[in-house]
């Protein structure tokens, strides 16, 4: 878990500081230095347009992490609010759950691709699409928690002293879902980073020449034989970032859910 956290801090600070670290403009072509192998001058080599893969990978991290964090936070917030309300009011629960079931019947990447076909590709739309795909899953999770929490004595006690429904939901029940929501949010963080890269790689994500990990890999695909580094390094960063987030998620689960500590 610690190594995951350290790696995440490193990647995010490198991405945030990309303009200071990068020695080239990540969108400027330099045809004199096409497809060069990794060297002291270009740590990760250059791509078919002579752009520095190291610099582009740093900039790519900005998009990936931005999408990941925005999705994780939004899904957590929206999911908790809808889940709390649905779990508390039985009538609403039926409707919301049927809708969530229907949404969850669509495989993640399929639905994301179909929505991109309709909305068009951009960072903003990629975020909207991933949020829409993940939220029903979070709602279901929170709602399950609420169903068991609302039968407990402390909720009954709160009701007995005359607490209002919003107060019971947000002050008494919500804090108890925190652990589960945090663990799920890290999973969605990792998933969003992966989905963004996949969409961009498929040409259905962020605009083609913007440096994102998926875009760089997609550009490098045709040069796999001559210049494997173009696709290799951004993919390695994607892999290590997702791995780091998952390790942190595992650590969080062990720390927040003692019931699972023994089992997993």
């Amino acid at each position: 878990m610690l190594s995951g956290l350290i790696f995440l801090v490193l990647v995010s600070s490198a991405s945030v500081l990309a303009p200071l670290i990068a020695r080239t403009d990540p969108t400027r072509t330099n045809t004199l230095e096409r497809l060069q192998a990794p060297s002291a001058r270009h740590f990760f080599g250059t791509d078919n347009l002579g752009m520095d893969v190291f610099d582009r990978t740093l900039y790519g991290g900005r998009v990936s992490l931005f999408v990941g964090i925005t999705v994780a936070v939004s899904v957590a917030v929206i999911g908790v609010v809808i889940g709390l309300v649905a779990g508390y009011y039985r009538r609403l629960d039926d409707l919301v759950m049927r809708l969530a079931d229907a949404m969850m019947a669509f495989p993640t990447l399929m639905l994301a691709l179909a929505m991109i076909a309709v909305l068009g590709g951009s960072v903003q739309n990629v975020i909207i699409v991933i949020i829409s795909v993940d939220t029903p899953r979070m709602v279901r999770l929170v709602r399950g928690q609420v169903l068991s929490l609302r039968e407990q004595q402390f909720v009954e006690a709160a009701r007995a002293v005359g607490a209002s429904v919003p107060r019971i939901l947000f002050v008494h029940i919500a804090p108890n879902t925190f652990g589960v929501v945090m663990v799920a949010a890290t999973l969605y963080f990792a998933g969003a980073v992966m989905t963004e890269a996949a969409l961009s790689y498929l040409g259905a994500g962020v605009a083609p020449y913007t440096p994102t990990w998926g875009n760089i890999m997609s550009g490098g695909q045709r040069y796999l034989q001559a210049a494997v580094w173009v696709s290799f390094f951004p993919g390695l960063f994607l892999f290590l970032t997702v791995l780091a987030i998952n390790l942190v998620g595992d650590g969080l689960r062990d720390a927040l859910d003692p019931r699972l500590r023994r089992g997993l």
């Binding site: 696709s231 892999f239 997702v242």
Partner: peptide, 9 residues
């Protein structure tokens, strides 16, 4: 955690 398409590459 490993991206399928990177592994494929």
């Amino acid at each position: 955690s490993v991206p399928g398409f990177w592994l494929a590459f």
